[in-house]
């Protein structure tokens, strides 16, 4: 399979990348790990006369803790995330998601920013980013802006990125105490799966009475974008965690929050049912982790 003809650039600073993007307006594509983009180019799903690689911009490949926030550069790969101490310690649901994406080979190239910009409804890391309240950091000719990742997705393959803008990274509040989070996905085989459904949950427990203080649940593969499951969250809030509550939350997610469609990977009915099961199960683990703290 051949790639179409294009010119290739490897800027070393964000500004340089923004300038290039501006210069080749509309005809240029940004590339991070290339695991989506090169496949799409080969399959002729997209075209580009100019490819701008972000891989040589050092600051985009760093995971940095600053005070009570964590900054993740857009070009940080799944392997990097999986090995990062702070991710392992404080962001278990991101660690699990990054271990689940693709294969051991793909994970060495695939980046967090690429996963987000690709904006697949089934995207591996997206539900976890949502439940940790990540903000996306964007930079363009008009300057910088920050928006919640939750409102960044506009549809399959569509995001709120403006022409000329670059996603430079993510900012996540460091979770404090008494919290737990988990991520689960369901596919047909045990590796290299395109998700049929995927769910992340974040729970904070009120230490005084061991009830749920805050719950955030995000569902993947059941709408045009990953979505929050507000009804399920409501079920949990202020309740003591337990099997019955988890089940009820799962049922709320299943019946009230998701809007899946039929496609060749699964029917809407099955996806709905599985949202129920996976929501229940992620909550079980997230709460167990939260109570253990």
């Amino acid at each position: 399979m051949l790639l179409p003809k294009f010119e290739f650039y490897e800027p070393t600073s964000i500004q340089e990348a923004i300038d290039l993007k501006k210069k080749y307006r509309g005809k240029a594509k940004l590339m991070a790990g290339g695991t989506d983009l090169l496949v799409h180019l080969k399959k002729k799903l997209v075209t580009a006369d100019h490819l701008i690689s972000l891989a040589k911009i050092k600051e985009l490949s760093q995971v940095q803790q600053a005070g009570d926030t964590l900054k993740i550069g857009t070009c940080v790969t799944m392997s990097q995330l999986s090995k990062s101490a702070v991710i392992q310690e404080k962001f278990g649901a991101i660690k699990t998601a990054s271990d689940n994406l693709g294969t051991h080979l793909i994970r060495n190239r695939a980046t967090l920013g690429g996963n987000v910009c690709n904006a697949s409804p089934a995207g591996e890391a997206l539900p976890s980013l949502i439940v940790y309240q990540a903000q996306v950091r964007l930079q363009g000719p008009e300057g910088k802006r920050k928006i919640p990742v939750e409102s960044f997705f506009k549809g399959p393959g569509k995001t709120d990125i403006h022409e000329g803008e670059i996603l430079v990274g993510f900012q996540l509040p460091l979770p404090e105490k008494n919290y737990g989070a988990h991520y689960l996905q369901l596919g047909k085989r045990k590796s290299s799966e395109i998700n049929v459904v995927n769910v992340a949950a974040f729970v904070e427990i009120n230490p005084a009475d061991q009830t749920v203080k805050t719950a955030r649940i995000a569902l993947g593969s059941v709408a045009a974008t990953p979505i929050r499951s507000f009804h399920a969250e409501d079920v949990l809030t202020n309740k003591a965690p337990g099997e019955a509550v988890f089940y009820e939350a799962g049922e709320a997610a299943r019946h009230k929050d998701c809007q899946p469609i039929d496609d060749f990977r699964g029917t809407a009915a099955y996806r709905r049912a599985m949202i129920g099961v996976l929501t229940k199960r992620t909550l079980e683990t997230a709460c167990k982790l939260a109570m253990a703290q």
Binding site: M1, F8, G34, T35, L38, V39, K42, K43, L51, S53, S79, G102, T103, H104, L105, I106, N108, R109, S192
Partner: peptide
């Protein structure tokens, strides 16, 4: 496959394994 799915093209690049069909 040429699309990152099979791993037949695996090489080690600066110490990490990659699908060389998805690296320029």
């Amino acid at each position: 496959c040429d699309t990152g799915d099979c791993g037949a093209c695996t090489v080690v690049l600066d110490g990490d394994v990659v699908n060389s069909c998805l690296v320029l």
